[in-house]
């Protein structure tokens, strides 16, 4: 008997006492999420992880990006990223070693989650394959205010599982030494979120 057949046979035998009725999953945890102050809450919670957040008007994204990237040499720009960058490096099949020599990466996001201060990448246009936003030490992520949803449930409902996803909540961190939190291990040690919203002054 193959391992597959035997394991499935063991499963059947183990559950001989079960009557075969499907367990009904209660969903009482789903309550209407508060929609006011979503963006403020998102900003608060991203900052809680000691990530940097800059709020800016759509017209001043260029300046905010330049400021976030000041001091960086080479900046990786995934194809489809909406803002042209002077020092931008394109991903022409860069190896892991090549990526390690790049200072920063800029990406867009697919959505943001206010309750947990999370940004989600799905690695399409403007975000690039997963390694791009992982190996460089600074990740600057452009999030539009209208992409922010209330909670985890809203995010899961919007996301398509067929594309790979990376949920990012702050810079990489560890609590492995005496359970004290240290920011910055293997992933980008600095996460800078640029939150683009109409409500901000164009010059700011």
């Amino acid at each position: 008997m193959s391992a597959r057949e035997e394991i499935l046979r063991r499963v059947r035998t183990a559950l001989a006492d079960v009557d075969g009725r499907q367990v009904v999953v209660p969903r009482d945890y789903r309550v209407p999420a508060p929609t006011d102050g979503l963006v403020d809450r998102f900003v608060d919670r991203v900052q809680d992880y000691r990530a940097t957040v800059t709020r800016c008007h759509p017209a001043s994204v260029d300046g905010a990006l330049a400021e976030a990237l000041s001091g960086c040499g080479r900046v990786l720009v995934p194809s489809g990223f909406p803002v042209p960058l002077a020092r931008g490096v394109e991903d022409a099949g860069l190896s892991a070693v090549d990526l390690d020599e790049i200072d920063a990466v800029v990406t867009t996001a697919t959505l943001g989650i206010a309750e947990t201060g999370t940004i989600v990448l799905t690695h399409g246009d403007g975000q690039g394959r997963r390694a791009l936003s992982l190996v460089p030490d600074l990740h600057v992520c452009l999030v539009r205010a209208d992409q922010v949803v209330a909670g985890v449930g809203e995010a899961v409902a919007l996301l398509d599982p067929r594309a790979p996803q990376t949920w990012i909540s702050g810079p990489s961190a560890t609590s492995d030494i005496e359970l004290d939190r240290v920011e910055g291990v293997h992933g980008p040690r600095t996460l800078h979120v640029l939150l683009v919203e109409d409500g901000q002054p164009p010059g700011g």
Partner: peptide, 20 residues
């Protein structure tokens, strides 16, 4: 870990051509 969300969650559905 006692956090609202852990820093990184990865989901993947089999092989993605050109990524990983």
């Amino acid at each position: 870990t006692g956090e609202r969300m852990n820093p990184y969650t990865s989901t993947w559905t089999g092989v993605t051509p050109g990524d990983g």
